[in-house]
Nucleic acid binder design. Structure first.
Lengths: 147, 147
DNA sequence: GTTAGTGCAAACTCTTTGCAGCACT
DNA sequence: AGTGCTGCAAAGAGTTTGCACTAAC
């Protein structure tokens, strides 16, 4: 297993991007995260870690890395844009509408469906977004106790 | 089959909402549309039809009707919010990334998946959003001709 | 007559952009 | 040295809100 330091360096080198502190910071935060993050999330964590990066730089870094295919970008039902490493198999989100807890769903079951759709519509499908929402067990319990 | 006029009236009456010209206009536009629409779409069509409604009224109407469960709201990967009648079985979108043509997908294949997820996570799942993107046959052809 | 709905303009959130200065290669 | 990246502040899109006025019940 290679260290985060190395991984970030490699990603930047491969994509002919300058190796700057801001990009290191952003990449490390995304690597460490178990869930997908918003620009605001990353901005806040960078600040917490004592490695502040401007919000506009975060946005620019995220969009550069998405274009290069390093990150996967998806707009959630809360209207915010979330990013995750696309080197992981991509993952969908299950969001609690009460507490906003997010679970990432490990396997994406949509490949077969995509193939079928392509046949039907003639489209060349190159992506999808899927998100579930509901109530997590903790919130369900809380609601029950109140009643 | 009941007329649009009647349907809009019924929807408003059932939900204890005042029967105003703006709401009639918005509801008729949504009923007539084959695809889901944004607030801006509805605003523009209302204007075209010579029945102008303010954008803020459109937004307020859409959010009222979504809360009442009359409309289904979903935020697309383009960052805009689309609305459709929820009396129809809900439909997902297949969007061409080149020309933005939208096809609605007739059947939603996610029920069984939801059940499985509920078992695994303990969540009570009450909704999902799903969207595919790709290139429509026309755009694929155009791209080919250029090359 | 009362309450709910509307229009207008201003505010708000998330994201993008122009420009001058700084850091990486 | 030269280009690409950053910070700052201002602008942009989409959406929401406060307030006075109007229309539905």
């Amino acid at each position: 297993m290679i260290s985060g330091e190395t991984m970030a360096n490699d990603i930047l080198k491969i994509n002919a991007l300058k190796n700057t502190r801001s990009r290191q910071t952003v990449l490390h935060i995304i690597e460490d995260a178990a869930v997908s993050l918003t620009a605001e999330d990353i901005y806040a964590k960078a600040f917490q870690n004592g490695e502040p990066v401007t919000l506009s730089t975060v946005y620019r870094t995220l969009s550069t890395l998405s274009e290069k295919g390093v990150l996967l970008k998806s707009i959630s039902q809360d209207g915010k844009t979330y990013y995750q490493l696309s080197s992981h198999q991509h993952k969908h989100r299950l969001v609690c509408t009460a507490c906003n807890e997010i679970i990432l769903i490990e396997n994406c079951p949509l490949e077969s469906l995509e193939a079928e759709l392509e046949k039907k519509t003639g489209y060349t499908i190159n992506g999808h977004s899927l998100e579930f929402c509901g109530i997590c067990p903790k919130c369900a319990k809380k609601a029950k106790n109140k009643a």
